[in-house]
Design a protein around this nucleic acid. Structure first.
Lengths: 195, 195
DNA sequence: CCCTAAAAATACTATATAGTATGTTTTGAT
DNA sequence: ATCAAAACATACTATATAGTATTTTTAGGG
């Protein structure tokens, strides 16, 4: 990795953290560069403007994190009920104490920027589409293998799983880890009703 | 209502709309007063600062709206499964086309301000506590009346209902009304698994 | 080594923002 | 009607912000 590439990555790393904790609009470019060894000239050399940086941050930081922590683990179990439950349970377990109060980076941006900026809207939709589609495929395979009842609508269930996860992350900002535990119990009971 | 009371209400009305659509931090006091027949002097006569106005807006605008559109309707059905499903379904039906892209006012603020400001955190927690408690009580009554299995944990279910509703409102900013429909199907199936 | 383009640094502008200072008008009790 | 307090209006300050203009440094192929 060249020095320029490292500069670019340093900006995106810092932007990810600050935006995750404070929101996109509340994160100023000055704050990003002040807390990094990067100047304004370097910032605007690598990114046309704040919006381009934000979109790059979603594509290069957020999307890969989702793939690694929520999508890849799905393939460790054949039964979709186990796969969905365990992938989420393990992710939430890792997040405990560290990330609870700041929620989910994707959902934070969906909430804040979805209605305000078309490019954010579209880019974030791509991230969610991919996640939902991956779960949906897992469920279809599970139906073929007899783990899930045939009349279950895979897309509806996948969307509902994602939506309730995001609801947990959002409401969890207020209620913390106790909500995580009660969520997991209800998620399991919901998923088992599909078999 | 006196003229001063009407001025105060005009500020809160406008603040509610702008904050709902753009977020709290992105809503400037200048924008609020420019789009109302109110000056800065009037604003700061009625509210010590922006934070006090925001807290007042939650207590006087958001909390009553939740009570009227989601809590009171719960009492129209004796069976908690019907009550929860119908109260939410009717609320969502009313929101269609109008409020979908901007989500839920409460959840928007929980997301944005929960981690950043203790007073917002506490005030919003009060709003959610009240909603969850109301559903919880409804479920307990339903258990006594034989509508719900005795071993169901009323609090966990109530929290899960609220959390998934907020997840819908949040993710719904991206997916719109189609998500509302698939959510309602899954909500019904989940609730029926409690009987 | 040298020289050009990439990469980065510095200084600046224009605008937006929360809040204040100070003044004027309106209201309602006497 | 009077007058004090409530209610509102106007002008201002200090700071933060996205972005630009301009200059300087650094990297790497010849």
């Amino acid at each position: 990795m060249t020095k320029a590439e490292r500069t670019r990555k340093a900006i995106l790393d810092q932007a990810f953290e600050l935006i995750y904790q404070n929101g996109y609009q509340a994160t100023s470019i000055d704050k990003i560069i002040d807390t990094t060894a990067v100047t304004k000239g370097a910032f605007y050399y690598h990114f046309k403007n704040k919006e381009e940086m934000g979109i790059a941050m979603i594509k290069e930081m957020i999307a890969p994190r989702i793939a690694q922590t929520l999508l890849h683990p799905l393939q460790k179990w054949e039964n979709p009920i186990e796969a969905i439950y365990e992938s989420i349970a393990q992710k939430l377990h890792k997040d405990l104490d560290v990330n609870v109060e700041f929620g989910c980076p994707t959902n934070n941006l969906v909430q804040e920027m979805g209605p305000l900026n078309l490019r954010f809207h579209q880019t974030l939709r791509g991230v969610l589409d991919h996640w939902i589609k991956t779960i949906e495929t897992k469920i279809e395979l599970g139906k073929a293998a007899g783990f899930i009842r045939a009349e279950v609508n895979a897309h509806d269930v996948a969307a509902y799983v994602v939506l309730s996860y995001e609801g947990l992350k959002s409401t969890g900002k207020i209620y913390g880890r106790s909500l995580y535990e009660s969520y997991l119990k209800q998620l399991r009971s919901y998923l088992e009703s599909l078999s």
